[in-house]
């Protein structure tokens, strides 16, 4: 039972990080119709920047955290201005390719500057277990979970109640209509990238806190894919819920399949079986729009 609960909680925490990254993914997709393949790299670079700021300047973590968010904002604006704005009107597939290119560039920069070795993240959140009665959980997990939750609530409120949030929803509902009514698309696109980069940065910092920092952290970009598809590419709520589902699935199947088969490493594979299954039976995901391909 403890084993199960341990896996479950672990899954929920990792899943909440997935949720947040998936939210970034969906946001860009909804606003710009582009699948951003550089999502994982945004997350990775966020973690490196945070680490660098803390280690080299000796700033407290919180200062490093917010510096990272500022950096992510500027990075997103730069990507939008230098690459994506120039591609406005280009076929979506070309823009998708460009995001792959952006990902490669970011990863190369990280390798160039920081190398490929694993770097331990300074202990920010206490690692001691917290006794929850039935099971003991490392505090870093709890911090990560609540931080994710906080960010998702903030952005949820942003979409629901602010002008800009509503404008973004209008654009995702009908880009043509929104533009013809006076919504500046370019600014909405930039905003989508900024928010997406910020949540990725936060996700990267949390993931690095839990599992250490290597350029492999960018694999989160791919690992979050099953969650995005399960939720339906264009559903923010779907992404949030599916992130947790996939995190739990990954951990439970990892934990139990290892005992069962003696093979470790099955955990990360399981979500992709789900991915394939979903694409078979319900390509629009749990919460996606029905006419996802219609223009």
């Amino acid at each position: 039972m403890d084993y199960f609960l341990g896996l479950l909680i672990n899954g929920i925490v990792v899943g909440s990080i997935y949720s947040m990254i998936a939210l970034g993914f969906v946001l860009i997709y909804k606003a710009t119709e582009v699948v951003n393949f550089a999502q994982g790299e945004l997350l990775m670079i966020g973690a490196y920047i945070c680490l660098e700021v803390i280690v080299t300047t000796g700033m407290p973590f919180l200062a490093g955290f917010f510096t990272t968010l500022v950096f992510m904002t500027l990075l997103a604006l730069a990507i939008e201005k230098l690459v994506l704005r120039r591609m406005m009107g280009a076929p979506v597939m070309s823009v998708v390719m460009a995001t792959i290119g952006i990902g490669i560039v970011l990863r190369s920069v990280v390798l160039l500057v920081w190398g490929a070795t694993n770097r331990p993240f300074p202990t920010v959140f206490p690692r001691e277990g917290l006794d929850l009665g039935v099971v003991t959980v490392s505090q870093v997990y709890l911090y990560a979970f609540f931080l994710c939750l906080t960010f998702m609530v903030i952005f949820g409120a942003f979409f629901q109640y602010t002008r800009w949030g509503l404008t973004m929803r209008a654009v995702s509902s009908s880009r043509k209509a929104a533009e013809s009514l006076g919504v500046p698309l370019v600014r909405v696109f930039a905003l989508a990238w900024v928010i997406s980069a910020i949540v990725s940065g936060v996700g990267g910092i949390l993931a690095a806190n839990i599992s250490g920092l290597t350029p492999d952290l960018s694999a989160y970009g791919v690992r979050v894919f099953p969650a995005v598809i399960l939720g339906g590419l264009d559903s923010i709520i779907g992404a949030t819920i599916s992130g947790v589902i996939i995190g739990v699935l990954e951990n439970l199947s990892g934990g139990y399949l290892r005992n069962l088969t003696g093979l470790s490493g099955l955990g990360p594979v399981a979500p992709f079986f789900v991915l394939i299954l979903i694409l078979w039976v319900r390509p629009t995901g749990l919460f996606g729009r029905k006419e996802i391909d219609k223009l």
């Binding site: 209008a170 009908s174 043509k176």
Partner: peptide, 22 residues
């Protein structure tokens, strides 16, 4: 820019309808 049209006093409808469907 396209989004400046309404301020200038230009409105349009679309052949293939562009509404906020939900």
């Amino acid at each position: 820019r396209p989004h400046e049209r309404p301020l200038l006093g230009i409105a349009r409808t679309f052949q293939n309808i562009a509404l906020f469907r939900e």
